[in-house]
Design a protein around this nucleic acid. Structure first.
Lengths: 224, 224
DNA sequence: GGATTCATGACAGTTGTGTGACAGATCCGT
DNA sequence: ACGGATCTGTCACACAACTGTCATGAATCC
């Protein structure tokens, strides 16, 4: 299931894009503002983003830069025919491609396919996600707590990613060893140590963990 | 036997979905309201849920969020063709996929198969179940009493699971020893002690047990 | 009333978890 | 290549939580 995020303030254009893309078999996430689109992308990342340049509030350029900050999801800009200057600026801001209004469905889907193929060839990884007050950006290799970046080591980062991917579920030390360290056997206490170190960085009170909790006898769990 | 829960208020659509799915070999749990569906899913979890967005009382979105809270059962949304905004909202609420009315049986079963395949690949575990006011979530390693988490030890948790799996039936001390402790022999009084401890955590008045009752001469039983 | 069954508090041994110390590995700038 | 800083994995110890046993007394049965 391929998902496309459409950020477009004009209701009629947004709806027509949505229907056209759905007819082509895409799952469409629609947003009327950059803010809404960015939030949506954080919570449930699409595989490609289609963004109009003329938006109320945060404009298209800023929106592109913000999307880029999280990961390298392919971005297609939608612009008016004569905005050549804007198109250049958008590509500079980080967009990958553009289409001009009025949008021809055939052309749009062709470009989306091309972009996705390129992205896949480049080996696209997992997308950024938000869990509670934690934002994880695998591409950028960074984690934000309430918007503030956390300085995590690589192991801590991978451990957190693994826990985040199964947020709300308990992961055993064995599972974590296998997935984070790729050890098929080994000392499970290793996990404890790194969990402890991670807690010092992401818990307000490491003595009473609220986010990364221990489930005695079972393992660890990242609260949703 | 694969079970699908269908939550749909329109009698005709519900019936037609039920018949279509049964023809495809699914076991169908049908519910006309979100309340009924949620209850049903807790008591007798299906492998996939099909939910209409327009429901009386608790609406489809809330219903999706509630289902998600318990476990990661695949959820498919059924919506009217032009509810694109609603579809987006539903996916945001935690749905995995959607189909639009009128539902084509072929498409529906294809999507169900795809979802189930994905769920299996992700290694789905046992589903959450509800017994009276008790909710057991094996994946999250937690038990809720009226929505409040209970701090159970591992033995207590396993004992409760065993009793829950046969809720309403009496289990002898010997059976519990074998299944929870994997002792083929041993002191049956051990069970008494742990039942007592469990009662302190899940009975309102441990002196007069209402949920975990003893059947003198036979064993213990968890009330449905 | 005596026998049986069950509930419970106390207790000691066991297990599970958190953490600080440390030495080797790795990274990085010079 | 060198030296310092950071990171990683191991270990030992402390402490808290859990477990199983036992003794005692209450409830129930015959």
């Amino acid at each position: 299931m391929v998902a496309v995020l459409v950020i477009e303030d004009d209701d009629r254009i947004r709806l027509s894009l949505t229907l056209a893309l759905e007819d082509e078999g895409y799952t469409v996430h629609a947003a009327a503002t950059a803010e809404e689109g960015l939030l949506r992308q954080r919570r449930e990342p699409a595989d490609t983003v289609l963004v109009d340049l003329m938006l109320p509030g945060i404009d298209g350029f800023e929106c592109i830069r913000e999307l880029r900050r999280a990961d390298d999801v392919p971005i297609v800009v939608v612009s008016a025919r004569d905005d050549t200057h804007d198109i250049v600026a958008a590509l500079e801001a980080g967009a990958d491609d553009y289409v001009v209004k009025p949008v021809a469905t055939k052309e749009l889907t062709a470009r989306l396919r091309a972009l996705r193929r390129r992205a896949r060839a480049a080996g696209a990884g997992p997308r950024a996600t938000l869990i509670g007050e934690l934002e994880i950006r695998p591409q950028a290799g960074e984690v934000l707590l309430r918007g503030q970046p956390l300085a995590l080591t690589r192991t801590e980062f991978r451990l957190l990613c693994e826990l985040a991917e199964h947020a709300g579920q308990v992961l055993s030390r064995q599972q974590l060893l296998e997935r984070v360290w790729e050890y098929d056997f080994g000392d499970e206490r290793l996990v404890d140590v790194h969990v402890g170190r991670l807690r010092h960085k992401l818990e307000d009170d490491p003595g009473a963990p609220a986010r990364l909790v221990t489930v005695r006898g079972l393992g660890y769990k990242l609260q949703r």
